[in-house]
Amino acid sequence: MVGYTDKIREISERLLKEGTVDMVIGFRQGSMPMMNEPCFAKRPEDVEKLTWDSNCGINLANYLTDRKEKIGVIAKGCDSRNIVTHIIENKIKRDQLVIIGVPCKGMIDRRKITSMFETEILSVAEEDGKVIVKTGDAEKILEKEEVLQKNCAVCIHRNPVIYDELAADLVEEQKDIDRYADIREIEAMSPEDKWNYFDDLLSACVRCYACRNACPLCYCPTCFVDESQPQWVGKTTDPIDTKTFHFLRAYHCAGRCTDCGACERACPVGINMRTLTKKLEKDCFEYYGWEAGLTLDARPPLDAYKPDDPEDFIK
């Protein structure tokens, strides 16, 4: 993806030189394999640190919230959808932004790759749809398609939906994707199995809230779990309190979540809390034909009253 990086630097340098933006928000190379760090460039010479590869899974819309500057922001498909949501929800103004769209080819799943190797991974490189992984004693070439982040594997909006500049030609969208196979499996469970499934899913949670904090939708000045008057939820890792946090957070994201996967990616203990938000994403799609962040012209379904809502779920 050298082409992407060069183009991103070129556009960013131009925007900074012209003074069109005060800063560009993007990624810089991380200090560990399969990790990049969100960063900003404020001077034209800083654009040299900007980079792009399959380790840019953190959602940069999260770094725009309530900023006052004029900002160039690098946006893959899902970031652009969250930017749309941010604009609708008044978290940033459209005219503050120069959106540098990145037609995305999917991010790789660092946990999956890590679990495929017995020993520590020392370097990971990419070339033509291949991922080359080196450990202390071995080298292995993986097909990128097979090690995509789960949400990227089922993504049908890889191209940015809103942009001012493009870092590459648009990519072909994935077709004939069964996006909700995992959710249907859970839906088919008995209530008891569901309960056990969620118990197990969330058992390792340490309540750090990295999932919430990585999420561009979770911008409340004080989250309900942090409220102390009244205190809605206990502060320990009690299983009921933990579930309360996760279930409520998922509901707060209903109709707004783009399934960008930043939450799951951020979790230090590898919990797939995306199953919760994704169920609601599926419901929004099935009940309202709604996919979040595709247009600036409509508000999310749970945020708007329509007399002709089908309301089939109530009958």
Partner: peptide
Amino acid sequence: AFACLNCGT
């Protein structure tokens, strides 16, 4: 600090 999520991990 820019990238930090304040997750406390």
